[in-house]
């Protein structure tokens, strides 16, 4: 470490030098922690299949690895990909339960892998499958993007307004309570877990899903949107829309954002039946 002429800063500088050591030390401890003896071995089983490769055949592959404290499926799969199988594909983006990219079936239940702790599985056996209802890209990676884009286009997932906004003028006031209600429904992250949980969607691929019905409810209560219930009926008033829903509510039970899908779908059903 080179020295400056300024002697008064020297002490402070040394102090900071030690900070760097603290950070380095924490790295070392972290590494050590990773190899603690006595941590259990877990087995992760994954479907492997590459539909774009004609020679690929679906298979289930077991990966055995040491569990580390606080290990999520994101951490486990990253480790598997770097050390055990360079060819395993899965989708992770934010790894914090915010972006909705990593939905998969974990021991049969659709959930976000990044928010799933391996320690939640007492048996130490975790079976991973790609989300059903979406096109399989490879292994655990599915094409939720295309599905969600089509859904958004189909339900006109945007504000439709006859009013013109002058953006240099004071914004239109909104009751705080109403804004909060819209926000509640706007929290959907399009992870597709509701769709993969849905018995209607499993059988009928044109079903709009809880994500689509929730989106319509979101715009229905938004004061900026001037569409009427008749307009919304044109979007979801059929058996591929609200009337296809059988209210089995696996969507509500599995939603990682705890959206009130049950109430909102019921609300839309009442509205649409009365149009």
């Amino acid at each position: 470490m080179s020295k400056t002429e300024d002697a008064s800063l020297e002490k402070q500088e040394q102090n900071i030098g030690k900070v760097e050591d603290v950070v380095k030390k924490s790295e070392l401890v972290l590494e050590k922690e990773m190899s603690i003896d006595g941590s259990r071995e877990i087995t992760i089983t994954s479907l492997k299949y590459n539909p774009s490769n004609p020679n690929s055949k679906p298979e289930f592959v077991d990966y055995k690895l040491r569990e580390t404290p606080g290990m999520t499926l994101y951490i486990a799969l990253t480790k598997i990909k770097a050390t055990l199988d360079n060819d395993l594909s899965s989708d992770f983006v934010c790894r914090a339960g915010i972006c909705g990219a990593c939905g998969m079936l974990v021991n049969g239940r659709p959930q976000l892998a990044c928010k799933t702790l391996t320690s939640d599985f007492e048996s130490g056996k975790i079976e991973l499958l790609p989300l059903p209802t979406f096109k399989l890209i490879k292994d655990l990676s599915v094409d939720t993007g295309t599905w969600m884009k089509n859904m958004s286009l189909r339900v006109n997932s945007w504000i439709v307004s006859k009013e013109k906004t002058d953006i240099s003028k004071i914004e239109k006031p909104v009751e705080p309570k109403v804004a909060d209600e819209v926000f509640e429904l706007d929290r959907c992250i399009e992870c597709g877990i509701c769709v993969a949980s849905c018995s209607t969607a499993i059988m009928r691929e044109d079903f709009v899903g809880a994500v689509g019905l929730n989106r319509v409810a979101r715009f229905q209560i938004d004061p900026h949107d001037t569409r009427t219930d008749e307009d919304f009926y044109e979007i979801i008033g059929d058996d591929d829309g609200i009337f296809g829903c059988m209210s089995l509510l696996a969507c509500e039970d599995h939603c990682p954002k705890n959206l009130s899908l049950q109430s909102k779908i019921a609300y839309m059903r009442r509205k649409m039946v009365n149009v």
Partner: peptide, 16 residues
Amino acid sequence: PKAIRELASWGVPWTR
């Protein structure tokens, strides 16, 4: 400020 107001008109449910 214009961006915020434009976003409000596009449906961002800003806390009020």
